[in-house]
């Protein structure tokens, strides 16, 4: 059963590959829009890195609050500013993408 499923998925993968291979023949093939592809990748990378950065900042702030609860106001203030500025980095990427991809 497992082998049958693996053959099935391999056949499906070949079928998905075959469609663009056949589509590329002929004179009327359109050029690949690399800007759009790069925009998708850059947005994905920016979102992932911003998510990681927010997670790390929050984890560090929670750890610092646990160690020193008396410094709560300062840590909270720094965390709010940090999260707002990290979020804006993903927005910068989105704006650049909208400016470049029409």
């Amino acid at each position: 059963m497992r082998r049958l499923l693996s053959y099935l998925f391999m056949a499906l993968a070949f079928m998905f590959l075959a469609v663009p291979v056949f589509a590329q023949g002929g004179e009327t093939a359109s050029a690949v829009n690399w800007v759009a592809i790069a925009a998708g990748f850059s947005m994905a990378i920016a979102s992932a890195v911003c998510g990681l950065a927010q997670g790390r900042a929050t984890a560090a702030a929670a750890e610092a609050l646990g160690r020193n609860p008396a410094a709560r106001s300062g840590i909270q203030f720094a965390l709010i500013l940090g999260l707002a500025l990290i979020e804006s980095l993903a927005l910068y990427t989105l704006v650049i993408i909208f400016a470049k991809v029409k």
């Binding site: 702030a61 929670a62 609050l65």
Partner: peptide, 13 residues
């Protein structure tokens, strides 16, 4: 965001 961070600080402290 301020409220979420305040709630997080409540939980941590």
């Amino acid at each position: 965001l301020k409220r979420v961070v305040s709630a997080l600080a409540d939980r941590a402290t």
